[in-house]
């Protein structure tokens, strides 16, 4: 019996109650619910996306459904300028958002890691937008950006800008407007993760550095930053994927407009499937997105040293 339990890290308990599974089967039983759910609702859908990407499939136009070969992909890469626009915008969106969020999040974490009066409440307030949903963020910023009763009206009262300015419907301002709205919600993510990691920096290092006369900037560059490196790389990567994938905010704030100015690839997919019901084409676009995500996940696995130590 104990030999049979060699799969377990440690010998089996000397006495086992009747009815309990043998340790050999136990781990499989324990992961079964999760594995089944993920097979059924992640793996299977992913495979069916690949299948539908090769089909003409539109429930509202059933007479055209059928095998399409690579037509959907050919259409995307050669005939659909919107596809390229969304790719470019996705890249711009992810780089700008993640870069700014990391910068502000790092600065904020360093600040609230200090000891000062009011730190607890300061932290709570600074982190508060983190839990706000994409839709609610949109609601809030729609109120702020409203051309009649939003912030521009009161700025105009003070002589800044003009009355009736609508940042969300002007193609020259819409990008900054959505970036700011998403920053508002995204900065706390980095701040929280970096703060958690900052708390594990050994104080002795700073004291030693101080004795050696290191300036605060030197301490930051040579102690804090190297310590945070791994956390920063991994959270940046995860956040980049998240910003690429997440469509809630853009879907509800601009709907991808005006004139497709703020459509990321996933948002384009959602619009194509939800509004246009063009499921086959949407699946082909999804496949392209998967290839991009695959690249990111390989980088992620490399960096997180998957399997390197006993994870």
């Amino acid at each position: 019996m104990a030999q049979a339990a060699a799969v377990a890290k440690k010998p089996a308990p000397p006495r086992r109650r009747r009815g309990s599974a043998t340790p050999r089967r136990l781990p499989y039983l324990l992961i079964a619910p999760a594995a089944l759910l993920m097979l059924g609702f992640i793996a299977y859908p992913v495979i069916s996306v690949f299948y539908y990407s090769l089909q003409d499939y539109n429930p509202t136009k059933p007479w055209r459904n059928g095998f399409a070969g690579l037509d959907n992909f050919v259409h995307a890469f050669t005939e659909d300028p919107l596809f390229w626009d969304t790719l470019v915008f996705s890249a711009k969106w992810v780089v700008v958002e993640v870069g700014l969020q990391l910068m502000f999040g790092l600065a904020l974490a360093l600040i609230v890691n200090q000891t000062f009066v009011g730190r607890a409440i300061g932290r709570a307030l600074v982190f508060s937008p983190w839990a706000v949903s994409g839709v609610l963020t949109s609601a809030i910023w729609v109120l702020l950006y409203n051309s009649q009763t939003g912030i521009t009206r009161y700025l105009a009262d003070l002589g800044i800008g003009e009355y009736g300015t609508s940042w969300l419907s002007d193609t020259s301002t819409v990008f900054s407007a959505v970036v700011v709205a998403d920053l508002w919600r995204g900065v706390p993510f980095f701040a929280i993760l970096i703060l958690a990691d900052l708390q594990s920096v050994s104080k002795d290092l700073y004291e030693a550095a101080e004795v050696d006369g290191a300036s605060r900037v030197q301490q930051f560059l040579h102690i804090t930053l190297p310590h945070l490196k791994d956390a920063i790389i991994l959270s940046t990567l995860l956040r980049a994927v998240w910003e690429f994938n997440n469509v809630d905010l853009l879907y509800t704030l601009t709907g991808g407009g005006p004139a497709g100015e703020t459509t990321t690839l996933p948002l384009y997919v959602a619009n194509t499937s939800v509004d246009a019901h063009n499921f086959g084409y949407a699946s082909a676009l999804t496949t392209v997105a998967f290839v991009i995500l695959l690249f990111f996940s390989i980088v992620y696995l490399r960096l997180s040293k998957f399997g390197g130590d006993n994870k």
Partner: peptide
């Protein structure tokens, strides 16, 4: 890395 938004259909 698999986004729910892309698996809606």
């Amino acid at each position: 890395f698999v986004p729910g938004a892309l698996l809606l259909v």
